[in-house]
């Protein structure tokens, strides 16, 4: 296992490097640039643009800019945000806490709800409750998250509620933690959880249902039942454990969604996550922020995959990487 892990990590380094070259090239291909956007303000003269271009080394050839950036990364410096005149790492760090919190909470809630529902709908395939759950699942898959967000906000408003958007009521945002603040957060949190989690819940529920149905029709399940095992044992020990394997690989892909998947929902719901920050940076061509976030996303994807593979080996004794 140790050798395997080491090999994976070593392979990851050139992969990340290739991704960085690609991402940098793509950013350069975008029409216009950060400085061209500045001209929008009537007060900015061409002279100012040229001066700032020099300040940020943007007058250098692209490969020089890239090497400069790469040199920074090696020293642990992710560069400066043009937009905020602050180090990129500080800006990401400021938003990391809530991003990770929301993402993990959503993933947790999603799984805790989706797996049992998937099992339930697989076992009661044609029952009315399964049909209803399937409908909710299709609805969740088919409706864009921002629309769900707007519908929920409208519903809260029309029922006289005031917790529309954000994680706290205004007075609690900068207040120290207290029981009241925690309660206030819970009162706000359910909307983002539904909005961000609905899509994932539906996906996993459908997947789990399909996998389980597939496994339940296998010969070894019939054998297990034939030799007189209790249905509980057949289901939980033989069927579910096999049906869940593909979902573990899927979980590995969920890590990078920490950054990118919640952009629109976060904008609509005014959540303090990295999503809107990435969106602003892309719009404004704040290239070092975009680089840092996309690289982080790539790194998370690799880490997620590795974790999933390790987890798979742990869950399924048949899988060995030696």
């Amino acid at each position: 296992m140790g050798v395997y892990l080491l090999r994976r990590v070593l392979v990851a380094i050139p992969t990340l490097w290739l991704i960085s070259v690609l991402v940098f090239a793509v950013i350069q291909l975008q029409p216009g640039g950060f400085l061209e956007n500045l001209l929008e303000d009537p007060r900015v003269s061409r002279e100012t643009i040229e001066n700032i271009r020099r300040q940020y080394l943007l007058d250098q050839p692209v490969w020089v800019q890239y090497l400069h950036w790469l040199g920074g990364i090696v020293r642990g410096d992710f560069g400066y945000s043009f937009l905020n005149s602050r180090p990129v790492s500080e800006l990401i760090w400021e938003r990391m806490g809530w991003t990770v919190f929301l993402a993990f909470l959503t993933i947790l809630v999603t799984w805790v709800i989706a797996i049992p529902l998937g099992i339930y709908t697989a076992l009661n395939r044609y029952g009315p409750s399964s049909t209803a759950l399937n409908f909710v699942g299709y609805f969740g898959l088919a409706t864009p998250d921002f629309l769900v967000a707007l519908l929920l906000i409208y519903w809260v408003l029309s029922t006289g509620g005031t917790n529309v958007g954000g994680l706290f009521s205004p007075q609690y945002i900068d207040a120290p933690w207290s029981w009241a603040k925690f309660q206030d957060m819970l009162a706000h949190l359910w909307i983002p959880l539904i909005v961000i989690g609905l899509d994932g819940t539906a996906t996993i529920m459908r997947q789990m249902r399909a996998n389980l149905l597939d496994v339940l029709s296998q010969d070894y399940i019939r054998t297990a039942r034939a030799k007189g095992l209790a249905e509980r044992v057949v289901l939980w020990k033989h069927a579910v454990r096999n049906a869940i394997n593909p979902l573990i690989s899927l979980a590995g892909l969920q890590l990078p969604t920490l950054i990118s998947s919640t952009i629109i929902a976060s904008i609509v719901l005014s959540l303090p996550t990295i999503g809107p920050f990435l969106y602003d940076s892309l719009l404004n061509k704040d290239q070092y922020v975009v680089m840092a976030l996309l690289m982080l996303s790539a790194l998370l994807l690799m880490v997620g995959n590795l974790l999933a593979d390790v987890l798979l080996a742990w869950v399924d004794p048949r899988i060995r990487y030696e």
Partner: peptide, 19 residues
Amino acid sequence: EYLIIRDPNVQIAQFRAGN
């Protein structure tokens, strides 16, 4: 206080909610 709310529709929703 300035609340940071990006979506103009949500700004109006927050306004109507009295926030």
